[in-house]
């Protein structure tokens, strides 16, 4: 008796419990798919999904779509994050700029990001440029906010040190304000990275011409190819997971001296 309980405990690592819901779900899914008939249209068997994965992989389709989505997200991050950081710096360092820019920033920010798409589409067409603008915009908002907040929150006691040693404006910014705001700026960039990935998928779904995971999903949906859709979801999810993981690790690294008081 005791031996049995012991064995059970020894061979039942808790993480296995976490596999119960996905396994049950997959079994149910396959069962539905095997029923055939009307169900077969909606539910595809796991084997089919696997086959789709292999096909997409070997044809290079997946790599192409994935690469173009990732490229879009990263260039959006670079452009939107870069401009956002500059705007945030201007707003953080100059009160007049802050006063003039913040009502505009705050009112534009209220529009759900993908809500801009019809307008941007009218202006720049439904090609890559429009998509890039939206993705960059999604990176712009958080970087402005966090850069601005980071600079605003630089403590007066640190700035006093700069005054005592007669640092000029540029020296104060470069030696004190910028490094002090850096953790916040990075937080903004990390958030921007997560946002750009989401908005990349979003714009590709909406403007589904051209390459990209979102476009691929959307076209697969029109052809009722759930297997392809699922493969895309898998890769979107894995990338989201990788981004969050990366952010977690990087923040620990970047913010390591934040906890230490100056």
């Amino acid at each position: 008796m005791t031996l049995k309980t012991l064995n059970l405990n020894a061979f039942k690592p808790v993480w296995l419990l976490g596999l119960i819901p996905p396994v049950l779900f997959l079994l149910w899914w396959d069962h539905e798919a095997a029923k055939g008939g009307a169900n077969a249209l909606a539910f595809v068997s796991l084997a089919q999904v696997g086959q789709a994965l292999i096909d997409m992989f070997s044809s290079g389709e997946l790599a192409l779509s994935y690469g173009s989505s990732l490229g879009r997200a990263l260039s959006g991050l670079l452009i939107g994050g870069g401009i956002g950081t500059l705007v945030g710096i201007a707003m953080g360092l100059s009160k007049p700029v802050e006063w003039a820019a913040s009502p505009i920033y705050n009112s534009f920010r209220q529009v759900p990001i993908l809500g801009w798409l019809p307008l941007i589409g009218l202006w720049f067409g439904s090609g890559d440029l429009s998509k890039l603008i939206i993705v960059a915009l999604s990176a712009f908002y958080p970087t402005v906010l966090y850069t601005f907040e980071g600079l605003k929150q630089v403590e007066a006691r640190l700035l006093d040190v700069g005054r005592v040693y007669r640092l000029n404006g540029w020296q104060t910014f470069w030696r004190i304000q910028w490094p002090a705001a850096l953790p916040s700026i990075f937080t903004g960039l990390f958030q921007a990275l997560a946002f750009t990935w989401i908005s990349t998928i979003g714009v590709e779904l909406l403007f589904s011409s051209g390459a990209g995971l979102g476009a691929m999903m959307q076209q697969a949906q029109l052809q009722a190819r759930l297997d392809i859709v699922l493969v895309c979801i898998l890769f979107v999810g894995l990338t989201g997971f990788a981004i969050n993981f990366l952010i977690k690790r990087l923040s620990q690294h970047v913010l390591s001296w934040r906890s230490v008081r100056a």
Partner: peptide, 28 residues
């Protein structure tokens, strides 16, 4: 620079080495 000031809290900048913190005072 003729009047030095030591605060209650050290106010060294956490992102600079000790050496750089001290050298900061000589910037100008």
């Amino acid at each position: 620079l003729e009047r030095g000031l030591v605060f209650q809290d050290h106010r060294l900048f956490p992102w600079m080495t000790l050496e750089d913190n001290i050298a900061l005072a000589l910037t100008n």
